[in-house]
């Protein structure tokens, strides 16, 4: 059996808004191996959440066009699959953890009902079995006194506990892939550390692949194996987390790392990036980062650089005309 859990090639997502086409994702490739965490890093509007939803098959409504050349989850071809089969796949083989646990949980059903539903629908468990398995799951994600809390409702839990419940639901059926969309953004820093540790532990114990969507460079650096940096609907740089953070090969990645303050190394001045990310309705012709880039040349504004493999790196790819100079400068 192949170790590739997810393979997506040339993913395109276009929204139609009042007659205009808004390309949100423009040719994204993603490959995740078993037991691996890939962080998809980007700012708001970069297309990272849309990518996640497209993979989950949650963009199936009018006004959105989703297309790709390849979309495989393990042995399953997502492109040829019926909507019915795909629904069965969600929950069983791939699951999603959302940012806001309070709105992702049903407020009028107890936690036990919501967790138990997974076992009853997907594996045909009886009520009693489902309840017993649900208690096990709550225990696994570290909810104290799970036997007592199983009949409680979402509002009776704290933010961190609710996120644990969502994670319990996501891992309940031992999926091959978990997509976590900003799972800790709404949480306080001390609770965030707990949740990241939990995701990391479950990945190790269950061998699940994780696609972690985040805007936080620190979060990506703490837990991922590989990182893909998105800008204006495309991946501009991808590679091993250590290599990417230590030797960023795209000016955008490099600029981001220079623009955030580092707790361990306080600098006197942050290197701010001028301007702001482009809107999907008015993308520049060449490289999307060209208007903000300090290395921009005529080539950049005219021709869009392709995502190309770097020599010597382990599966490192960068979309920039000036990567060589950038890496030579160090």
């Amino acid at each position: 059996m192949s170790d590739t859990v997810l393979e997506v090639r040339d993913l395109q997502v276009t929204f139609t808004a009042s007659g205009r086409l808004l390309p949100a994702v423009r040719g994204v490739d993603l490959v995740i191996e078993r037991g691996q965490t890939l962080a998809l890093l980007g700012e708001s509007g970069s297309g990272k959440s849309v990518t996640a939803k497209a993979i989950m098959g949650l963009l199936d409504h009018p006004g959105v066009q989703v297309g790709s050349r390849v979309a495989r989850l393990g042995e399953h071809d997502l492109l040829t699959m019926s909507a019915e089969r795909r629904r069965a796949l969600r929950g069983n083989d791939m699951t999603m953890v959302f940012q806001d646990a309070l709105s992702a949980l049903n407020p009028v059903l107890s936690i036990g009902d919501q967790l138990g539903e997974l076992f009853r629908i997907h594996v045909g468990a009886t009520r009693a079995e489902a309840r017993a398995r649900s208690i096990e799951m709550l225990e696994l994600v570290g909810i104290p006194a799970p036997g007592k809390r199983i009949d409680d409702y979402p509002h009776q839990f704290s933010g961190g506990m609710r996120q644990r419940i969502l994670i319990a639901m996501a891992v309940a059926l031992e999926p091959d892939l978990i997509i976590a969309d900003e799972p800790t953004t709404a949480l306080d820093v001390t609770v965030q550390a707990q949740i990241l540790e939990l995701i990391e532990r479950l990945r190790r114990e269950l061998g699940t692949a994780v696609l972690l969507i985040t805007h936080d460079l620190g979060v990506a650096a703490e837990v991922s194996d590989r990182v893909a940096v998105m800008y204006a609907g495309r991946i501009v740089e991808t590679g091993d987390v250590y290599e990417l953070f230590e030797r960023p090969a795209h000016p955008y990645t490099r600029a981001l790392l220079g623009a955030i303050p580092d707790l361990e190394r306080p600098a006197s001045e942050l290197r701010a990036i001028p301007g702001q990310p482009p809107s999907p309705s008015s993308l520049p012709a060449g490289c999307a980062f060209a208007p903000r880039c300090d290395r921009v040349t005529a080539l950049c504004t005219g021709t869009r650089p392709e995502l190309t493999l770097l020599d010597g790196g382990s599966d490192r790819a960068v979309a920039c005309h000036h990567t060589k100079e950038l890496l030579d400068v160090g």
Binding site: G160, Q192, F245, L257
Partner: peptide, 26 residues
């Protein structure tokens, strides 16, 4: 100390550092 220790650091090389994990929520 706990707050500083919990903050994610954008440097993978610091991953192995000793961290203080607080239990529970505020």
């Amino acid at each position: 100390s706990a707050l500083l220790s919990a903050a994610p650091v954008p440097r993978p090389s610091l991953r192995g550092r000793k961290r203080i994990m607080l239990g529970g929520d505020p």
